[in-house]
Design a protein around this nucleic acid. Structure first.
Lengths: 253, 253
DNA sequence: TTACAATTGTGTACCAATTACACCATGCAT
DNA sequence: ATGCATGGTGTAATTGGTACACAATTGTAA
């Protein structure tokens, strides 16, 4: 976290390098071995937690901004990232606006302004991530979905909207490529889906459906060493997976 | 359309009353008796057409901004309006930025800046609409989807994204309340769906499915006067319709 | 007045997808 | 060898979607 003086400098400079009024908030869902967490940050000075976010450089595509922010907070890039909603209520950042409003004269005061925030959600394997605090926080860590803290501003709404969207999109979009090891078993993949949906699924039906999508390769080998019958290994068929990302998995009308 | 001087004044003032860098573009789909059109504008000075759009007042919720813009262009409000995507490429408004860049000094020049545009789509009955040009156009009119003009900037992408989204959402969201008369026949409603999807649907299956949603009331009366068998009239069951808007029409997993 | 054309109302058989459910195989623990 | 937990696979029942046919109504043309 920046010192008070550094912060003031940052805010004074921010208006020159970032687009005013526009922020990006990311809901980073982290998975590993049946667990599902969300990446959150906190300052020692405050009680409530917030989602990783940031601003858009003057000449930067918004998609890149989201990528950059996530790279800074997680250390990884090329992750599954999806724009899902824009939060544009004028009062959504009121509390922060008030907090910072006396820090600098209004015209130089980047953060005393209203922000419209573009929401992205991302899916990562939290084993690969090094959570890194930003300029306004000392703590950046994974929070379990069953043990969520109090959220700052409208970040609870952003989080919930992201989760709803993710669960909905599970029906149309393939997921898992970034979340599973290169080779994995069907029960492991099922566990991922169950974790996201917070719901038990039928083994046999899950397998049939997954295989029906045509995005998996069944490997010859099995995973030995477990305490029970050795399950077959699968890998993603990258070509079909990419195609399914574009085309979607199902149809309507 | 404003005169050149009025335009300069407008741009000089715009930065004071609107949020910088943020615009709203609306894809207004107009329906009437089996036709589907999209509302577009054009200046006499330019060849290409553009979508109704505008800016967000400093203290205005973005949803309200979209409503306000549509009210100005169409004369109606309380219409079906749906945020669908954000277009944030830094070059998307390049051509306009260049055009206006010498008009005023850069810091006062609202329109020489990059714009991130929030896309909304709306569904209206074009019979109820009075198309009204904005400050930058002389022409505001309905264009048939089969006879689209050349688009300005990235407005063709915005239009196509909206159409794809609409067609997709037809599977989950009830539509028609703003588009049909109070009482309507099943074939009329079917025509609306066929128009949007650009696809023939089966009469019997359409009827069964629609009734299955439980958002229609079958009335006792029939529509006399047609040249053929008198069809039954239906009206929307507002309560169930609103519920379906929130809940969606189908489930997944 | 009658026959016809166009349109609406309705039911049913078929196919595909989803759900529910049961049995056998494997491999470690004892 | 036996038990137990887990994985692999098949099948019947249900649901949802698609395809399709026939009877009824209404205006128009003969």
């Amino acid at each position: 976290m920046l010192t008070k003086q550094e912060l003031e400098e940052f805010w004074a400079e921010a208006g020159k390098i970032y687009l005013n009024h526009i922020s990006i908030d990311c809901v980073v869902f982290g998975f590993h071995e049946g667990q599902m967490k969300v990446l959150m940050l906190k300052s020692n000075n405050e009680e409530a937690w917030y989602l990783p976010g940031g601003f858009v450089l003057k000449q930067e595509p918004i998609e890149n901004a989201a990528d950059r922010i996530l790279k800074e907070r997680t250390g990884i890039d090329e992750i599954f990232l999806q724009q899902f909603y824009v939060f544009g209520d004028p009062d959504r950042s009121k509390i922060h606006n008030e907090m910072y409003k006396d820090m600098l004269p209004e015209d130089q005061n980047f953060f005393a302004k209203r922000f419209i925030s573009i929401g992205y959600y991302a899916l990562v394997d939290f084993f690969n991530v090094t959570p890194t605090p930003d300029n306004f926080s000392e703590i950046c860590t994974w929070r379990d979905l069953n043990d969520l803290p109090r959220f700052q501003l409208d970040h609870e709404l952003i989080f919930k909207t992201a989760l709803d969207t993710l669960r909905l999109q599970l029906n149309y979009q393939p997921i898992g490529y970034n979340l599973m090891p290169k080779e994995f078993t069907m029960p492991e993949l099922q566990k991922l889906y169950e974790t996201i949906l917070d719901k038990k699924l039928d083994r046999r039906n899950f397998q049939r459906r997954m295989l029906g999508f045509g995005i998996l390769n069944k490997l010859e080998t099995t995973r030995k060493g477990g305490a029970h019958k050795a399950p077959y290994l699968y890998s993603f068929d990258l070509e079909n997976y990419q195609a399914a990302l574009k085309e979607g998995l199902k149809s309507g009308w």
